[in-house]
Design a protein around this nucleic acid. Structure first.
Length: 625
RNA sequence: GGUUCCGUAGCUCAGUUGGAUAGAGCAACAGCCUUCUAAGCUGUGGGUCCCGCGUUCGAAUCGCGGCGGAAUCACCA
């Protein structure tokens, strides 16, 4: 057992309760406690250092962190960096500093020790109790006040020719979560989605449908719209491959066959007709995209993704093309001999990049330039985050550079939240090899497993059918979301479909279960606001409070790093700590009335933080499970 | 080949920005339910932090050089 910064192994100080205090007489402390504890310690240390060694202090930095569990103390000041400029040994400095801190801040520091250059400080129990009494009922605890900044988070960005898969799930969960985390960090957030609804790949599924469907539709076949269209995309590739093979058998080279296959030429022609606005092509395009959107909506609803604004590539590419004109006039872009338009980025360590084809049509980056302008024009965000896989790192480097060179005001705020691919133990998911993990299938599977677990345990036999379905969904999605969010977004991750996602240990259901346990206590008995509360803390009670206090800092870090996994790790540690506390100490049968009141408040505050922490990950927590 | 990223326990991952004896979960093993939910708790075993050199009070973390892996360098998206 090793919880960062927690004195879990320490001896219990006392089983008897000390003097008591009530909510009212510590209300005035609320403002001072709102400051995070590390800042408070730093302030006190700075002040004391200044008084002791005023002149030698210029430019000194030092670290403060939670004390390791094997040492006595709550927070630790690392003295090495101060020792040299102050010309003192770390131990002597620690003694002097510790002594002065404890003397000057009797209500804040209750003791210290110095070990090998580390000054370990113990915070008074009353500080932790003040925190508990002030915030145990505050459901917004840890959230930061509004900072006046506005940020857009673009995520999901689906293609309308295939259904969502596991990789999209990581994207959707990340995007939604980072948006919530930014809100908790004080930002105003706009969630957006760009739908890649045009291009040759879309025409491919359309051609296949025209050729082979005989008028079949999702409703006539009972297949979900996005899967229905995706099947025709697969069908296209099958037919394409067959036609190429017979052309090659007839003596044609592979490269030539790729270009000459009739079905491929039909798709190319359809793209031209689409750009020209051919009514029949537009009709099919709208019809089929409509089916896909129906399918996406169902999936988005299940996973809880939503958007404040949806953009369509079929709209933004035109604005991008207008910017190509402007860029040419400004001399940022160059027209080549063959008529294509490019930008030379070799001076920036990149390559020459095409921004418009020789036939005048837009490429991928063109529409993204248009989109950047459209977004800024509409919302004027300070920052624009793109949640897109790390395979597009180069693309976003180029995009930001181009926007800078065009002098767009939105350029500076462009931030690519680059996340790693989800891979199988055998490597990348490949649709051609049928190894793609379909989102809908995976969700079904997760819900099915949670239903099986729940039934086996038999704790909610009195639930009606609707309540059961809601619980299964909450647990299945909780497990899935937690699984995908608990690892650093930057890193690629491995998903093994053979081993189902866990429900024990470092998982969503573990945290959900902890919440249900706490709620079970609080259903039996609630904190009495007028009752007195024990003034002394046992080690596990204090450890819980130390962890709870860190919530706000964790949100801050999570915002700074655009990293939801910090929240997942934190919420797991908190749940683990609560479970240790729970098995060690009884709440409803506490050794005294004021101990019971203390623990009921601890329960309430822990439940609140678990609930709001999990909400930042897009995960709901149940009352019972 | 150029650029960027990665390499930590059998597996999946942390490691607070250079700090104390490198940690969790899973898997394995041993305990704990007449007491608030055992989807839990407690304990045991498990490490050449890819290798080497360097920087300094101190390196998994920083630098250089290897080895191994990934992404990208499209008039695809």
């Amino acid at each position: 057992m090793n919880i960062p910064g927690q004195p879990a192994a320490k001896k219990a100080t006392a089983g008897i309760s000390g003097p008591c205090c009530t909510f009212a007489n510590i209300y005035q402390n609320k403002i001072s406690i709102r400051t995070m504890i590390v800042s408070k310690i730093r302030e006190a240390v700075d002040q004391t250092l200044n008084q002791l060694f005023a002149e030698q202090l210029a430019g000194c930095t030092y670290q403060i962190g939670p004390t390791k569990p094997e040492f006595e103390g709550d927070y630790t000041v690392v003295l090495f960096s101060l020792a040299k400029p102050l010309r003192k040994s770390p131990d002597a400095l620690g003694q002097e500093l510790g002594q002065a801190l404890v003397e000057k801040h009797v209500h804040f520091f209750s003791g210290f020790n110095v070990i090998k250059g580390f000054l370990n400080l113990t915070i008074t129990d009353s500080y932790w109790l003040d925190l508990l009494l002030l915030y145990s009922a505050d459901t917004t605890f840890g959230r930061h006040p509004k900072n006046g900044r506005k940020v857009m988070v673009e995520y999901s960005s689906p293609n309308t020719n295939k259904p969502l898969h596991l990789g999209h799930l990581r994207n959707n969960f990340l995007g939604w979560s980072i948006a919530e985390i930014l809100k908790a960090g004080g930002y105003e957030v706009i969630k957006s989605c760009i739908v890649n609804d045009r291009g040759i790949h879309i025409c491919k599924s359309m051609i296949a449908w025209v050729r082979y469907a005989n008028g079949a539709t999702p409703s006539s076949t009972g297949i979900k719209g996005d899967h229905f269209v995706g099947d025709f995309y697969v069908r296209f590739n099958e037919a394409y491959k067959q036609e190429m093979e017979s052309l090659i058998a007839g003596g044609m080279s592979k490269e030539q066959a790729e270009k000459e296959a009739p079905i491929f030429k039909e798709a190319q022609q359809m793209l031209v007709d689409w750009e020209a606005g051919d009514p029949e092509v537009m009709r099919i395009w709208k019809l089929m995209n409509g089916w896909v959107y129906d399918g996406f909506d169902q999936t988005y609803k299940r996973i809880g993704s939503d958007f404040d604004h949806t953009y369509f590539e079929s709209d933004t590419y035109l604005l991008g093309k207008k910017m190509v004109e402007e860029g040419l006039n400004k001399g940022v872009f160059q027209k080549r001999e063959d008529g294509s338009v490019s930008i030379d980025l070799t001076a920036d360590g990149l390559d020459e990049k095409i921004v418009q084809r020789k036939d005048g049509t837009a490429v991928y980056i063109t529409q993204d330039i248009g989109l950047a302008i459209e977004k800024y024009h509409q919302y004027k965000c300070d920052e624009s985050i793109y949640v897109v896989g790390d395979e597009q790192n180069y693309h976003f480097k180029v995009l930001k550079l181009i926007c800078e060179k065009l002098g767009l005001p939105s350029a500076e705020g462009i931030y690519h939240l680059s996340y790693g691919m989800v891979e199988l133990p055998t490597g990348k998911m490949k649709s051609r090899e049928g190894t793609v993990v379909d989102a809908d299938d995976l969700i079904d599977e997760m819900v099915r497993i949670s239903a099986a677990h729940t039934e086996e345990l038999g704790k909610v036999k009195d639930f009606n059918d609707q309540e059961l379905q809601e619980l299964y969904h909450m647990l299945g999605l909780g497990a899935l979301k937690f699984f995908l969010l608990r690892v650093d977004p930057k890193k690629k991750m491995i998903f093994n479909p053979e081993e189902s996602i866990d429900f024990h240990g470092f998982t969503g259901p573990f945290v959900q279960y902890t919440h249900a346990r706490i709620r079970s206590i609080l259903r039996k008995e609630k904190p009495d606001e007028s009752a007195s509360v024990s003034m002394s803390l046992l080690p596990l009670e204090k450890s819980l409070l130390l962890l709870l206090e860190r919530f706000s800092t964790v949100i801050e870090q999570s915002v700074a790093e655009h990293n939801p996994s910090l929240i997942a790790i934190y919420v797991f540690e908190l749940a683990k700590m609560f479970n240790s506390f729970y098995t060690e100490h009884s709440v409803t049968n506490a050794e005294s009335m004021d101990k019971k009141q203390l623990r009921l408040r601890l329960c309430r505050m822990t439940a609140n933080v678990i609930l709001s922490g999990m909400a930042l990950l897009g995960i709901s927590v149940p009352e019972r499970m």
